[in-house]
Design a protein around this nucleic acid. Structure first.
Length: 381
RNA sequence: GGAAGCGUGGCGGAGCAGUCAAUCGCACCAGACUGUAAAUCUGGCGGCCUAAGGCCUACGUAGGUGCAAAUCCUGCCGCUUCCA
């Protein structure tokens, strides 16, 4: 269940507490994605030190390898990855879109019908068929705490007519997910997990469709709602606009989750103000691995929280020659393991030499930065 | 002492008369990344001019042949291998 602890007087931000099978997490919360049952480059011990409260895994990826049944037989995903705290699983809906984008390799990896989605495994080319029911089953079998509906992630470029059709499909799928979810909650094979189910609001860039989605999903017995689609987090001005459009329609008692949002610290600030309780993004960890590290003082004044950094985009590129002899930590205010012990010059050295320690230290920093920011935001509410 | 071969941009290594400021790899420099097909991908990488484009200096070194040379010839310097 979701409990609102405190509401901001100045904006829609709120402090909350969400209880699930494996304990609880406070909101607002940043959830590091750990797609393949691991947050890349770091371990559960690191995650605890970062004060991560909940992480993500992905139903599609774990279905492909090693298979949800194997994980179930080994005691569930928490035990499998030695993370005892809450886990949210994504449904694989995003992968339909992501694989169809085919930024690399061949493009015929996905075929969508109203019934479900046929994937070609990028691993070995074999066919996989996922329906909304199947996705929910996979997630229940994994034993995660929050199950996401299988949705159709809509492109930012979709026309209104395309978006209408896609939304219809997503909404139908949501209904099918609910049905199967309710069945599985009573199924003796799964009863020990009792996960929550979140619905996903689609509708692309169109406010009328987003509103329609909210109104449809609000009638279903969800434990939370999420905003999905390419737009969310990717096109921040539009995301904020859409949030404002639907704010009065979202049932207050449900946590609100913006999927894939949090590419930069500033995005987190913008969205929490508008009442978002949960968000996740691969970006902080990915750009860390790719050499970009968050930097900037988190300035809390009377009216707002902002980031004050000398670097473009509030992050520095550790590869840049200017850091060759730099003895300072990545961020002088940061309390993470990396900043407490290592210089920019050392991290640059590790990066240049492709030393694996770099990946861990960089990931620790960027994730901790996001979480420190969230803590500052919570204080402010 | 004799014989053969080789010297190309930070490194390795193509090119063997014109389309060569010189393929490619590494290194280096810069950029991108958003419910992770991502320890990935893209671009730049002799100098000067704002750019299309142009100019200059460059393939060990000094000369030579040719309309034209990194590419052919000669001397020198250096390196490698084989024989004594």
């Amino acid at each position: 269940m979701f409990e609102i602890v405190k509401k901001s007087k100045k904006n829609r931000a709120r402090l909350g507490k969400m209880s699930v099978s494996h304990g609880f997490f406070n909101t607002p919360v940043f959830m590091p994605p750990g797609t393949l049952a691991t947050v890349k480059a770091i371990g559960p011990d690191d995650l605890k030190l970062l004060e991560a409260e909940i992480i993500l895994v992905n139903a599609y990826h774990l279905h492909l390898r090693p298979g949800e049944k194997l994980i179930h037989d080994l005691g569930g995903v928490h035990k499998f990855m030695a993370w005892p705290s809450p886990i949210l699983s994504d449904s694989g809906g995003f992968q339909v879109w992501s694989l169809a984008q085919a930024k690399r390799g061949n493009s015929n990896l996905v075929k969508v019908t109203d019934d479900g989605v046929k994937f070609k495994s990028p691993l070995d080319g074999s066919s996989i068929y996922i329906t909304p029911e199947k996705s929910v089953e996979i997630q229940h079998t994994l034993g995660t705490d929050i199950v996401m509906c299988f949705d159709e992630c809509l492109s930012d470029k979709a026309s209104h007519a395309q978006a209408v059709r896609s939304l219809e499909r997503t909404n139908q799928w949501a209904l099918r997910c609910v049905k199967r979810h309710l069945e599985l909650l009573k199924n003796p094979m799964y009863t020990k997990y009792q996960p929550k189910l979140f619905g996903i609001i689609q509708g692309g860039i169109y406010a009328d469709l987003r509103r329609e989605a909210v109104s449809y999903l609000s009638e279903l017995p969800f434990d939370g709602l999420a905003l999905g689609g390419e737009t969310i987090g990717y096109n921040m001005p539009k995301t904020l606009e859409l949030l404002d459009e639907i704010k009065d329609m979202i049932p207050e008692k449900l946590p609100l989750y913006t999927m894939g949002l949090g590419a930069s610290p500033q995005d987190a600030i913008d969205v929490v103000k508008r009442g978002v309780d949960m968000f996740d993004c691969v970006n902080p960890a990915r750009i860390a691995r790719h050499g970009q590290l968050y930097n900037g003082r988190i300035v809390v004044n009377k009216t707002e929280i902002k980031i004050d950094s000398e670097f473009k985009g509030d992050c520095l590129r550790i590869l840049n020659e200017r850091f060759k002899k730099d003895s300072k930590p990545i961020d002088e205010d940061c309390d993470c393991y990396t900043c407490s012990n290592f210089s920019r010059a050392y991290l640059r050295h590790l990066y240049l030499n492709q030393e694996t320690l770099y990946l861990r230290l960089a990931t620790i920093h960027n994730l901790r930065y996001m979480i420190r920011l969230i803590h500052a935001l919570r204080e402010k509410i």
